[in-house]
Design a protein around this nucleic acid. Structure first.
Lengths: 190, 190
DNA sequence: CCATAAGCGGATGAGTCATCCGTTTCAACG
DNA sequence: CGTTGAAACGGATGACTCATCCGCTTATGG
């Protein structure tokens, strides 16, 4: 599975493509590979070689945000109170989903369909599972909720916050956190 | 605003188009107007004349389900206990969203962009508002939740239940109701 | 039965997508 | 250094989707 390191020019092109793609995502423009290639003044084939599909490119764009979230998860695992740990991590996840438009599709995609972020997402799932196990053991959350529910629920909250396309980023973030609080209230068992 | 009645052949074609489109939706095939036209053995232009965009066609497909939900809302308004009324109606909404794949996009779309279901959706919003007002007055739900939150939250739950594309319809419905219950627990103020 | 407006259909041009293959560039090695 | 082969490049191209336009057909009501 080990890939030989990219040639210098290839690495440069790859990075440039991701940078351009990031702008597309931030501006809400559709991520069309031909279009990205033209903007980057790079041959279409080069773009397709690096990223066979728009999803693959989007993954690369979302990578830093996902990595950051993984670090947050690791940090959450050092928190002693299971409820606080879970709550803080979920808030971080919602923040990532609402802050970076590249994140939700990657988060929602099936893990095994992902080339670049598959491992990271599996890591997140493990962290989720651990946080949930602790919370269950402490008896602070609804016992019927499993790890398999968490990603969908987070995506659902982010989706709900984004449905009002008229709202600005700030209101959407606020709504996302409000919705998360409703869910947390529903989960909590004092 | 009153439209003269359609000519007989036109009405027939329209109905046929919607029927074919319904199959597409049920099978999860993308609703491409050219494609629908060919399947229906009807000229492309005819389809475009009746439904300028795929969204418009989807609306027509979703119409019966939305009408049914409106009737449910009216029924809920006759229930005396505000909490029961709200809960039952929300369950009906989730059921509609999860049962009919045509419903979620229509539900999530901005009301004012809709040709056929705009009035119905406004009616639903009014019913929602009334149910919420009663629940607030009775002090049984979180006071910060407004009518504007309800549609997004319902869409979010439906979305969460559908993220696991691997699951069958039954499991998805079950999960949707579980998620709704979590939300309801979070909303409830005893 | 006729006139006419409403409706029909499919050919077509604009636009997007992704592949193929001849050319160029990098980097390892003598 | 110069050579060489593999790696990477690029853009022309054919397949495909989209939606419009306009000449033809059919329902309807007088």
């Amino acid at each position: 599975m080990s890939t030989p390191p990219l040639r210098k020019d290839a690495a440069q092109n790859r990075q440039r493509i991701v940078e351009i793609a990031r702008r597309y995502v931030d501006d809400g423009r559709p991520l069309q590979l031909n279009d990205v290639a033209r903007t980057a003044s790079i041959g279409v084939a080069t773009v397709y070689r690096h990223f066979p599909t728009p999803e693959a490119l989007l993954e690369a764009v979302a990578l830093p945000a996902i990595e950051k979230l993984v670090r947050r998860a690791e940090h959450a695992l050092t928190e002693v109170d299971p409820w606080t740990a879970l709550r803080d991590f979920l808030a971080a996840a919602i923040e990532a989903l609402l802050t970076d438009p590249a994140v939700p599709p990657v988060f929602a995609a099936a893990t095994n369909s992902l080339e670049h972020t598959g491992d990271l997402k599996r890591g997140l799932a493990t962290a989720f599972a651990e946080l949930l196990t602790r919370a269950h053991a402490a008896g602070v959350i609804d016992s019927s909720v499993t790890e398999a529910d968490m990603t969908p629920l987070m995506c659902g909250i982010a989706y709900a916050a984004n449905v009002h396309s008229a709202l600005g980023p700030t209101e959407r973030a606020t709504n996302g956190l409000r919705y998360l609080n409703l869910l947390l209230t529903g989960l909590y068992r004092p």
